[in-house]
């Protein structure tokens, strides 16, 4: 009722103003909206700039291939995390899924291509199913994603430790070689990066993609618009598990072995990469391109620390500071946008 009165007042006032003009494009508003993403781009440019001025041959295809390979595991994990964050949730279980994926690969992959391919498919299917189970628990029992995925992280990690108690096992060399396979001068990780962007360009406009983002912005209005929240949760966490499994399959090309504990190194960095890239933890806002840039930023800090000849222990300090700076930038931009709206 109050709203409608205000609207009537506004409508009554409008003709009293100057003649109606074509609505101008709100450039400042758009800029503010994209500020976190732009800050991430700026950071990446800065890091690459410094790196490039200290090290020769940074602006080459070789360097691109190398850095993308180094960042790809995080990128895959963070892609799943981005989908969950857009839904307004969080997935800590990807750590367990990544560990589980690497130990299954390290104990089951053989030189026989068809066996290995079958197990790779099983790992991916397992990732989707376990993720979907997270989603099911969250919607059926109305549980908090943080605690559900904390619990499943622990369970998956435990299973991984039972399958392979310590780092080890072996990955067939042909699977390891996949990460350095080239096409048109670009290695497969770079092609995977392009594929991820292509996937996103397609996915965000699909019915499911739209439903996930709508639910993340406002669960109630999404539900009232006919979105099945249970199905959204199922797909959201299922995809997160699927991408975590994909991350595991890629990770073993880099390590050549399985590890029951390696996954935990990707849980919070995957959230950090998304947040640096401008994805909101409150759901509904963000873009995979930002996340991928965030993953590059986090990976390249390591290179930067190396060429600056300082202790590698500065790397976590730098990534923490960058994380804080970017989240402060987005919170300032968000405040400015809110002030404009009022």
């Amino acid at each position: 009722m109050v709203m409608s009165v205000q609207q009537t007042v506004q409508m009554a006032q409008r003709p009293a103003k100057t003649k109606p003009t074509k609505p101008a494009i709100d450039w400042r508003g758009r800029l503010l909206d994209r500020a976190p993403f732009l800050v991430a781009c700026l950071m990446l440019a800065l890091i690459v700039g410094i790196y490039g001025s200290l090290q020769s041959g940074v602006f080459s295809l070789d360097e691109l291939n190398l850095d993308t390979a180094a960042a790809m595991t995080l990128m895959l994990a963070a892609t799943g995390q981005t989908i969950v964050l857009l839904r307004g949730g969080i997935d800590l279980s990807i750590g367990g899924m990544i560990s589980l994926g690497t130990v299954i690969a390290a104990t089951r992959f053989t030189d026989d291509a068809s066996t290995t391919a079958l197990w790779a498919l099983i790992i991916l299917a397992l990732g989707f199913l376990i993720g979907a189970l997270n989603g099911l628990l969250i919607s059926l029992l109305k549980l908090q994603p943080f605690l559900v995925t904390l619990a499943t992280w622990s369970i998956l990690n435990g299973i991984a430790m039972i399958i392979l108690p310590t780092d080890g096992g072996s990955i067939p060399s042909w699977w390891v070689g996949f990460a350095s396979a080239q096409l048109l001068g670009l290695t497969s990780p770079v092609w995977m990066l392009l594929a991820l962007l292509l996937f996103w360009w397609w996915f965000r406009a699909t019915r499911v993609g739209i439903a996930i983002q709508a639910t993340g912005s406002n669960e109630k209005s999404a539900f009232l618009s006919g979105v099945s929240i249970a199905r959204v949760n199922l797909v959201t966490y299922g995809l997160s598990g699927l991408f975590a499994a994909g991350a595991a399959l890629f990770l073993v090309t880099q390590t050549g072995a399985g590890s029951p504990t390696i996954g935990k190194d990707y849980i919070l960095p995957s959230v950090a990469a998304a947040v640096i890239g401008g994805v909101s933890l409150f759901g509904g806002r963000g873009h995979l391109a930002g996340t991928l840039i965030g993953a590059f930023v986090l990976t390249l800090i390591g290179n930067l620390v190396f060429v600056l000849h300082v202790s590698s222990y500065w790397q976590p300090v730098a990534s923490g500071v960058i994380l804080l700076l970017s989240v402060l930038a987005s919170s300032v931009a968000e405040k400015a946008a809110r002030n404009r709206a009022q």
Binding site: L147, L150, A151, S154, I155, G158, M161, I162
Partner: peptide, 12 residues
């Protein structure tokens, strides 16, 4: 490993 599984189950 079993301890981690039990931890997770208890939290759930």
């Amino acid at each position: 490993g079993a301890l981690l599984i039990v931890y997770g189950a208890v939290i759930l």
